[in-house]
Computed example of a mutant assay.
Amino acid sequence: MSDTSPDEAKPAANEPRTEADILADPRLRELLAGYQPWSQDSFLKSYAHVLSDLHYQGERYEASLEYLLRQHDQEAYRQIWAIQHQKLFDLECQWRAGLVTVPGARLTADFEDWHEAIAACDVIAPISPEELALFDAFLAQLTDPEDLEPDDLCHDFWRYRSYPDLHGEDDADDTLTPWTDYWDMRRGTAYLRTLPNRRGELERHYEQAAYAERRRQRAEAVATPPDPRPNAPSYGPEFDTLVREFLRRFEPAAKLRQFETKKELLAYEASDNAGDLEVALERLQEAGQAVIPIEAHADWRQAVIQAGNRYYLDQLRAALPRVYEDYCQRISLGISLTPPREKRRYRKCSHFEADEPIIREGRRALGEPDDLNF
Rank of each mutant, 00 (worst) to 15 (best):
I292M: 07
L265M: 09
E62W: 11
A223D: 11
L366W: 05
I124Y: 11
E149V: 13
V243K: 01
P11Q: 06
V304D: 01
F43I: 13
D170H: 15
E368N: 09
L65C: 08
D370S: 03
N197V: 01
A303G: 09
G104Q: 03
G334M: 06
L316H: 02
E149C: 15
A319T: 04
T338Y: 05
D299Y: 08
I305H: 01
P164E: 02
D184L: 05
L32P: 14
D3K: 14
G308Y: 01
W183F: 05
N231C: 07
A117D: 10
G334Q: 05
K262R: 08
Q258I: 00
F259A: 06
A12T: 05
E75G: 11
T143H: 15
R29G: 09
P369G: 01
W95H: 06
L256A: 03
D314P: 00
K255G: 04
W114K: 03
N14R: 01
E278I: 10
K348M: 12
S336V: 10
E75S: 14
W38D: 14
G98M: 08
N309T: 11
I127L: 03
R244I: 01
A319R: 01
A9Q: 15
A97E: 02
P237D: 04
Q302L: 14
L202H: 07
G34Q: 05
T189R: 00
